[in-house]
């Protein structure tokens, strides 16, 4: 499948319909600059993504975007954090090997001296019930968007 990103980049990935469970007790933590480029992340972030640290550093966070996620969810995320507010939601992420993992993500703006200098995203283990509620909702949103790629996030 070919994925298209808002900045004109595109890549071809193999999508495998197999979930990797979120590790118990862990938090996946990452930080980006204001453009969404990864600047810091922890070991859990690397482990779950399937990429190496070198492959991730400096890349846009959309490298984890799964095509089953509607663009509207990410638009809502960006609109919220750019206003200086906290966003939370359930996200299906794409691993390097094409498998996926679900997270409960909370994203907050990093405000220093009154200015947003980046964003911190912390993901924890999601409830299965919440995931099961999101699956049809996201499928419906995706169908409304009428495409499988992400033109706006």
């Amino acid at each position: 499948m070919k994925l298209h990103y808002y900045d004109g980049n595109e890549r071809t990935v193999d999508i495998i319909d197999q979930e990797v469970p979120f590790p118990d007790g862990r938090l996946i933590v990452s930080r980006t600059d204001t453009a969404g480029v990864l600047t810091h992340f922890n070991q859990s972030f690397t482990d779950m993504s399937g990429y190496t640290e070198e492959e991730l550093m400096g890349k846009n966070h959309y490298i984890l975007r799964h095509p089953d996620m509607p663009a509207a969810a990410f638009k809502d995320l960006w609109d919220t954090v750019q206003k200086g507010e906290k966003w939370s939601g359930y996200v299906k992420n794409l691993r390097k090997d094409g498998l996926f993992y679900w997270v409960h993500a909370v994203v907050i703006p990093n405000v220093r001296s009154g200015e947003i200098v980046g964003y911190t995203s912390v993901r924890r283990k999601p409830s299965r019930n919440k995931i099961n509620q999101c699956i049809p909702l996201y499928a419906e949103m995706l169908a409304e968007e009428g495409e499988q790629s992400c033109p706006t996030c």
């Binding site: 933590v29 906290k86 909370v106 994203v107 907050i108 990093n110 911190t120």
Partner: peptide, 11 residues
């Protein structure tokens, strides 16, 4: 410290 405060804020 600011980073840890941000992180605590997400919990």
């Amino acid at each position: 410290t600011e980073f840890m405060i941000d992180l605590m804020d997400t919990l």
